[in-house]
Design a protein around this nucleic acid. Sequence first.
DNA 1: CAGTATAATGTCACAGACTGACATAACGAC
DNA 2: GTCGTTATGTCAGTCTGTGACATTATACTG
Lengths: 216, 216
Amino acid sequence: MGYNKRMPRSGDKARRRLQKAALELFSERGYEQTTASEIAARAGVTERTFFRHFLDKREVLFDGQITLRAALTGAVAEAPETLQPMEILYWAFRSVEQILEDNRPFSGPRQQVIANTPALQERELAKTAALTDNLLLALRDRGVDERVATLAAQTGMAVFHYAVVSWFADASRPLGAYLDEAFDELCRLSSPLTVTDAQRRQFLCYNLPQQSNGEN
Amino acid sequence: MGYNKRMPRSGDKARRRLQKAALELFSERGYEQTTASEIAARAGVTERTFFRHFLDKREVLFDGQITLRAALTGAVAEAPETLQPMEILYWAFRSVEQILEDNRPFSGPRQQVIANTPALQERELAKTAALTDNLLLALRDRGVDERVATLAAQTGMAVFHYAVVSWFADASRPLGAYLDEAFDELCRLSSPLTVTDAQRRQFLCYNLPQQSNGEN
DNA sequence: CAGTATAATGTCACAGACTGACATAACGAC
DNA sequence: GTCGTTATGTCAGTCTGTGACATTATACTG
């Protein structure tokens, strides 16, 4: 791996130090009570450098998303051709399981901080929405009808999120177990038609008869 | 309607003037290029007063949500007992149709501004999430199982949002028509089992056979 | 090893978003 | 009118985020 272009100092260490310092300070005194300048100081750099690495104060906790996004969209693209839309998503979610397990030491405190900070929850919603949109596009690129893809991505993300939250609450079992359970529940919900047991996930059915003429 | 408590000046006019001024300025020069001070000036008040009425600059475009939330949760609570979860939501959405139609002169430009401003899109996601949560609780209060309610609220909001966006894009037809279409599509999607035509909305079915053992 | 290009960082100045504290003005009730 | 309540004004100050320019560290070159 030789260089043919010039590669001056990377600044990657500083970035990581900033993230670490931010998470620590947020955990100690809370997000609002922590100043960008203080984060920079603990990381040994200037406030200006902080804002060069992260567009705003919130963003310092949200760049692992890039890795996750790449992994998920990649998995969707490379899933077997025979799979149905929701199966593809299940495949994709299972394939990023290891990534999430590895990051848990960082993700745990992170989720704690987010749970205590409305501003950060807002950002997380935005990131999740962006991720959902990426899944939509990845499905569409496989030839899935756009509206089906939209609905599948939305529902799939909801299920995924539900599983991850459960896993954060109790990590005694692997994430995959929660994922299986969440998909099981998705299948069983509103489906009196489901025939067999957990081994055969089959249908999720919503009953939607004619409207009751609810005109105001 | 006599008063027994003291009711000094309401400050409600100023609030409305601020919202109007904000929407105008955002439409003219854009959100980022508009200062809170400028909004206040056009409304004939001080910047400080602006921030007394709205917790932050974004919030000035998001208080109609309160009305909508009340109407929706109320409709869910008062829907006929015989309805299924998704039917309840359909009923609720139809019942707020008039409110949205009435507010369209305001909502139109508002959507335009939001579409051009990431910061505002973020806030809108947060508001939608909060609304979804309220729907969840309203369904749960009717005795709907919490997990079913979660999934129904999520899916329902997605469909509702889809319909509203379509209606914003082309208001030549009433919102109700788009709502019907969106629910129709929800029923037809992934459901080769759907028997009859649009008149009988019946099933939304996701196929979820056994996983393909996608272990990373 | 000295030199150089490149990218990260530092320094400074500044606008804009918010907030707390205190003073003032408007309005309803009596 | 007087009084009490509430919106608003005034002002000082902190924090976020940005542009412009100078400085430093690094990888490569000769």
